[in-house]
């Protein structure tokens, strides 16, 4: 496999398009799953994201009494922006937009922005349900963030570098998924959690009338929903770079392998959505701090020892 090279910044215009298409594919898969579960055709499910987009574009935006509109709109628009900023350090085959020396930390920083943004969505509406949703997300974030950080650190330790291209290059012989399964699982669950998705979507769940989504309509709602899929997609793509050897694979070109692996992982995330009951933040906290965090620390320790022994 060739080394990863930075491409002309002009390609940055393409990144949101590719991200959007992948996210749309994820949304379509979700639509298909919903439609099949309700006994409708495959095709009627696949078009759901398109129909929903059209519907939300036609819908009017709302404001509420004494809403903090500025912060609210920032929160709504921010999720998509964060996801797009993440794409800067994600390699697609042999290319990456910005091969910065701290790519792994960059990714982590962007998902910390989600803390602020989700809370702002909940706060801005000045609605009890929305605010409960925002706080639920922070409570959940406190549980997933540390395990996520150590899951991110583990491949970086093995690669002796925080640069994503180095992490990919270090997997030429053996993909990290093979000897870092705990870190991989923790990373994937954290991606699902910060994307506010599936069992970790308690901040937008039906028991609080949609939580952070309670009061948003129209294009604001579209941006939040799209942002969730975009975060899920970038999470899948980053997992490919960290654990699945990036664009490595036989026959096909590297960029195609990246896309294929990303889509497969994204499909797995999307499928997880309806399969499991919700993991409520107060239940998650103990498990995350007492079981998951030591487990992933142990994983980091094992990797560090292996790396130190091999020199």
């Amino acid at each position: 496999m060739n080394d990863i090279v930075e491409v002309n910044p002009g390609w940055a215009l393409l990144a949101p398009v590719v991200l959007g298409l992948l996210a749309l594919a994820g949304a379509a898969l979700n639509g298909i799953l919903v439609a099949r579960a309700e006994g409708r055709s495959f095709r009627s499910g696949a078009v759901i994201p398109v129909l929903e987009t059209a519907r939300l574009m036609r819908q009017r935006r709302r404001t509420t009494v004494a809403a903090d509109v500025l912060l609210w709109r920032i929160g709504c628009a921010g999720l998509v922006v964060t996801a797009v900023l993440k794409t800067a350090v994600i390699p697609v085959g042999p290319w990456v937009l910005a091969d910065i020396p701290v790519g792994v930390v960059w990714f982590n920083t962007m998902d910390v922005f989600v803390w602020a943004l989700v809370w702002l969505i909940g706060w801005g509406a000045n609605s009890a349900h929305a605010l409960v949703g925002g706080y639920r997300f922070l409570a959940q974030a406190v549980s997933y963030e540390l395990p996520l950080m150590f899951a991110l650190v583990t491949p970086a330790v093995a690669a002796h570098s925080l640069r994503v291209s180095d992490v990919v290059a270090a997997q030429q012989e053996l993909w990290f998924i093979v000897w870092m399964p705990i870190a991989f699982v923790v990373f994937c669950l954290s991606v699902v959690a910060f994307s506010n998705w599936g069992p970790f979507a308690t901040s937008a769940s039906a028991d609080i009338a949609g939580g952070i989504l309670t009061e948003v309509s129209g294009v604001d709602r579209l941006l939040i929903l799209a942002g969730r899929y975009a975060l899920l997609t970038t999470g899948a793509a980053f997992a490919v770079a960290l654990f699945f050897g990036g664009g490595a694979g036989p026959l096909l070109p590297g960029w195609l392998w990246t896309l294929v692996k990303t889509l497969l992982l994204l499909a797995a995330f999307v499928t997880l959505r309806h399969r499991l009951p919700a993991v409520r933040p107060e239940r998650l906290a103990e498990v995350a701090w007492i079981i998951v965090l030591p487990a992933v620390l142990l994983q980091t320790l094992v990797v560090s020892i292996v790396v130190a022994v091999r020199g």
């Binding site: 006994g39 409708r40 499910g45 949609g210 989504l213 009061e215 309509s217």
Partner: peptide, 16 residues
């Protein structure tokens, strides 16, 4: 709603 592929709204903001 399920037969038509429509969706139940979870809050007034979500409803047509």
């Amino acid at each position: 709603l399920a037969r038509r592929g429509w969706a139940p709204a979870i809050s007034p903001a979500d409803a047509d």
